[in-house]
Amino acid sequence: MALPAQLRPIQHHLRTAQEHENRDPVVSYYCRLYAMQTGMKLDSKTPECRKFLVNLMDQLESMKKELSDNESITQEVVGNAHIENYALKLFLYADNEDRAGRFHKNMIKSFYSSSLLMDVLSVFGELSEENVQHRKYARWKATYIHNCLKNGESPQ
């Protein structure tokens, strides 16, 4: 279903959900939950957004049913740990590549995805200061290295 323009801020989280559909359904579920919560705040009144969000809610309900034997879905505290670990794993991979001077698309994507998953952590409550800093650093690094590679410059 096409994403209405008002809901554009959640497009990357929805893409991450799609990419993890088979690889890690727990990541996929919480990315959609974040998108749902955020989408409702952005616009749940106009018909196109309502239609989109109702569809997203249908998807979430059916995922929850399918994953009913998974503790990371049935207990949000376990889900919180799962998403945080996954986000940190991506961050550490990208950070290691960065420190080793290996700059490539995959590490840029890992930095960016870890920052998106730190957004997702906000469904469980206020982010820790450490996660806020990680998110800021990861998003800045992804943008900076992306721009360097695009302009044929070496990241410092």
Binding site: L33, M40, S44, R50, M57, E61, K64, E76
Partner: peptide, 27 residues
């Protein structure tokens, strides 16, 4: 007609909020 449309919109919004709470086991 516009007030009917607005009532329908707000009922649908409530429905979404309730479904979200149920999904998260908050009801």
């Amino acid at each position: 007609t516009s007030s009917l449309a607005s009532s329908v919109a707000s009922a649908e919004q409530d429905d979404l909020s309730q479904r979200l709470s149920r999904l998260r086991g908050q009801v």
